[in-house]
């Protein structure tokens, strides 16, 4: 499989103390472990099982993900912006790989 590619949408700037909406998407098959291949063998489960978002090192939002989440898992949530800084997003795969990306935000 191609490497999971995260995409994140964060507003470029916000007023201090504002609550902003963050949208994230990562390309991933999210193989549920329920499907069978042509030979009738179960395709082993391989999903992203955890997502976290941090702002300047403080946890903002986290999510435990089960196989019932669709392929290319999409997550939308809110965050408070007390100061300028950087959002860090982390996805954890079943096989242990970690996908990361980050986005800066300015305060007006």
């Amino acid at each position: 499989m191609a490497k999971a590619k995260p995409r994140v949408k964060v507003p470029k700037s916000a007023k201090a103390g504002d609550v902003i909406t963050i949208k994230t998407l990562i390309s991933h098959k999210m193989e549920s472990g329920q499907r069978k291949d042509k030979a009738g063998k179960v395709i082993p489960r391989k999903i992203i099982n955890k997502f976290t978002c941090e702002f300047n090192g403080t946890r903002v939002f986290g999510c435990d993900i089960d196989p019932a989440i669709s392929a290319n898992p999409y997550l939308e949530f809110t965050a408070k912006v007390p100061e300028a800084g950087e959002f860090k997003f982390t996805w954890v795969d079943d096989d242990g790989s970690v996908y990361e990306t980050s986005k800066k935000i300015e305060v007006k």
Binding site: V19, I69, Y74, L75, F77, A79
Partner: peptide, 11 residues
């Protein structure tokens, strides 16, 4: 830090 307790996803 979440500001609001709301989230959207696809299942």
């Amino acid at each position: 830090m979440s500001g609001e307790a709301s989230a959207t996803t696809r299942m």
